[in-house]
Design a protein around this nucleic acid. Structure first.
Lengths: 331, 331
DNA sequence: TTGTACGCGTTATCAG
DNA sequence: CTGATAACGCGTACAA
């Protein structure tokens, strides 16, 4: 364990000078800087983040509240966050909220007690007021929500446009009775995706039928269950827009269980373009909006916040990925 | 920010006493203990892990080297680790090694500089010597490898038995020309799974044919490619044992691309029982060995190590999960 | 531009 | 059983 003090001794300067050079806190003469650089290198000195955290209040770690670390959706985002933070010397601290308000609150509590320099929240159940309050004590970036504050930045990709794209695609192929599989409506993105679906129907002059809409939970099991619900309602449909890929996977299986083939009997479009969607049978047509990129942008926004800048995010527009789960409606 | 010192003041005791109560370092009179407990509660005191880390050398955080944080396989394991560690007040620090020796080394470097109390390595490319050396400076648990040391514990689930189970199942249904999709052989688990396949063949008196074995990389894309390889070799087979589920997903698609149906034309068994395997078309028969549980056990082992105990792991035996990707061979 | 001295919140050592 | 006191390694006013 090489300490800053040892570096100072070897370079023949005071510890503060070393610290200054490390943090760029003040200008230092070239001579001493060279000596210190040399000492750092030969001694293999690495500043101790723990001590740094105590002294300077900065731990160089960013808390990330995810809902389920093992989710294929969030996993992608976490990857993006990790890579982006690493480039700036920060380390992410991942904690799971388990789609549960209490757990989420506890997760953030854990992060704060760990003195993270910032918190990134992916979706979640905490209400805006609580997030705003939290942002008084630590800068926050929230993904998939609409909140704002001095040190609170939020953004989403365009869920509504993406959902509209998917629905329009089905309509353009002649489908008029399009079922909608929805996520939990306490999430803004679920609502936005529903609105995109409404937009497309309205533009095509197709009336909304509540019977065709089933609310679920963004899981494969939920997608499968949704198909059951639809069948029980005994309502006709030739296509499904599943507002995320995971539910689409379950739906495909649910349909198969009832001897309905995709796309021959029912067309289906998903949302997210998870990696797995290339390998389902049939490969799933879906809306792409790099989740990885979203994570990276969230991390980037946090870094801006930390530098005292106003973050800006540049997210690519959602894009339709055509694969094989859709065909022209039979008339 | 309530500090230990404030708690001490309010309880009318010295900081040391509060610290002792917090850590159970020494016996304290009931009276003072009660006063301190009360003070802690009313003040809402939470010890500062950063300060703790500096003073006591323990950061209450465990480094976890995973290969790709967004992998469906590792994701499950990370979940198990997170939950198990949390119960003991530890926090995991996840870093990705990207299946790359240099990255992995750098990841561990990062963890050490963060002063983690222990390191859990999931598979990885570092050689045993290096891991042993590392374990001098920090207790380590390695999953999916065979290494040992004073403060170095490793374990794997029984890959060989699982692979044998899968292959035997295929054989029992009359398949004799069984292709094997392999992961990268620099990993012990890939070798073990291959050996399990050999075991089953040997027990049934079926000769090994190198032509039926294709080495790949545990990804969906790799599975798809493997099927192409097999077809190019122009070798007959009626079943595939894919040594992980992800390759099986790709293989199913690859077969479909050549108009081969699962299980009608080719039976296929996977390994890992990822959640997605229930929702593929058809649902995948596979070998279950709770990845989540493996992660939890790894974390548990680390906690034992930290308590100075010798870890023991109790992993359930791998188990065959029968779904719909397999049928009796046509003769 | 540089050094000194102190503080960050805890734990550990040593008296008592 | 309990309380001073000294670290832990670094950042930062303050002084020079």
């Amino acid at each position: 364990m090489v300490t800053l003090e040892q570096v100072a001794a070897r370079a023949g300067v005071s510890p503060s000078t070393v610290s200054r050079i490390l943090n760029g806190t003040a200008t230092v003469s070239e001579l001493k800087r060279a000596a210190v650089d040399e000492a750092i290198r030969t001694l293999g000195f690495r500043p101790n983040p723990v001590a740094r955290g105590l002294a300077g209040g900065r731990t160089m770690s960013i808390g990330v509240v995810t809902q389920r670390i093992s989710s294929p959706f969030y996993g992608e985002a976490l990857s993006g966050i990790e890579v982006e933070l690493e480039s700036a010397g920060y380390v992410p601290l991942f904690v799971s909220g388990n789609w549960n308000e209490a757990d989420e609150r506890k997760a953030i509590e854990t992060l704060l007690s760990r003195r993270v320099d910032g918190v990134i929240v992916l979706a979640g159940r905490l209400d805006n007021r609580e997030l705003e309050a939290l942002s008084d004590s630590v800068p926050m970036v929230v993904v998939g929500r609409q909140v704002a504050g001095e040190r609170l930045f939020s953004f989403s990709f365009d869920n509504r446009a993406g959902a509209r794209l998917a629905t329009e695609h089905l309509i353009s192929l002649g489908h008029r009775r399009i079922a909608l599989l929805l996520g939990d409506l306490i999430h803004d993105d679920a609502i936005d995706r529903q609105n995109g679906y409404f937009d497309a129907l309205a533009a095509a002059g197709i009336p909304v039928e509540q019977e065709l809409i089933v609310q679920s939970d963004y899981t494969e099991a939920g997608g499968m269950l949704s198909v059951s619900r639809l069948m029980e309602r005994d309502v006709a449909f030739s296509a499904i827009f599943s507002s995320n890929d995971q539910m689409a996977y379950g739906a495909i299986l649910g349909l198969a269980r009832r001897n309905l083939r995709v796309p021959d009997d029912v067309s289906i479009v998903g949302f997210d373009d998870l990696i797995m969607s290339r390998y389902t049978m049939p490969p799933l047509s879906t809306v792409r909006h790099s989740v990885y990129e979203t994570g990276a942008q969230a991390a980037g926004a946090m870094l801006s916040l930390l530098r005292g800048e106003r973050p800006t995010v540049q997210l690519a527009a959602p894009e339709l990925v055509l694969r094989e789960s859709v065909r022209r409606a039979i008339r």
